[in-house]
């Protein structure tokens, strides 16, 4: 009976060492996952801010050229390309920054690699002929690294007969 317990201490220690090693590996693997999440969080925030910036550019274009938008929007039922032209979805557009395009943004040394975003803008018009107030819905769709976000903003505009 006693001889069967020979070497038990060694076995117990090995088991304990294995258990400790498992705890260490679990700890390290958790840490590895956390470092992978941080760049993803940053990328999502950068996508949101950049989309807000493109919304600003889109609002500026509407502010400067409202009648061109109304013409293109009303004519879209005949040819949707007219609205695409306004939104510069054709190649070779001069819009800077483009309402549709791809841009690489610096992210800093913590994240390491820059964020490359691909984005497009859409306009929609919510109107009622009884009133002289319209709602212009601007949506920016943005993709980066397999993730996509959509930021939309609605502005009120007034129609005045010239």
């Amino acid at each position: 009976m006693r001889t069967s317990r020979n070497g038990m201490a060694l076995v117990i220690v090995l088991v304990l060492c294995t258990a400790l090693l498992s705890v260490g590996l679990w700890f390290i693997s958790g840490f590895r996952h956390r470092t992978a999440i941080n760049p993803a969080v940053f990328e999502r925030i950068q996508m949101d801010f950049f989309a807000q910036g493109i919304l600003q550019a889109a609002m500026l274009k509407f502010k400067k050229m409202p009648s061109e938008f109304y013409y293109a929007f009303r004519a879209r039922s005949i040819n949707p390309a007219y609205l695409d032209l306004y939104l510069c979805k054709n190649s070779g557009s001069k819009d800077v920054p483009l309402l549709t395009g791809t841009m690489t943004l610096p992210s800093g040394s913590f994240v390491g690699k820059p964020v490359t975003v691909t984005y497009s803008t859409d306009f929609d018009l919510v109107y009622n002929q009884l009133y002289n107030q319209d709602g212009i819905v601007i949506r920016v769709n943005i993709q980066s690294g397999g993730r996509s976000r959509q930021v939309s903003h609605t502005i009120n505009v007034s129609r005045h007969r010239l």
Binding site: I45, Q52, G53, I54, M59, G108, S109, F110
Partner: peptide, 30 residues
């Protein structure tokens, strides 16, 4: 009428390395 805004936050690690993160957006004069 368009302003590019780049905000950088930087810090120094205890072992001396300086790290930073940078966000970019635009603001239009409406």
């Amino acid at each position: 009428r368009l302003r590019r805004l780049r905000l950088r936050v930087e810090w120094r690690e205890p072992w001396g390395v300086v790290r930073n993160v940078e966000l970019t957006t635009y603001k239009a004069d409406l």
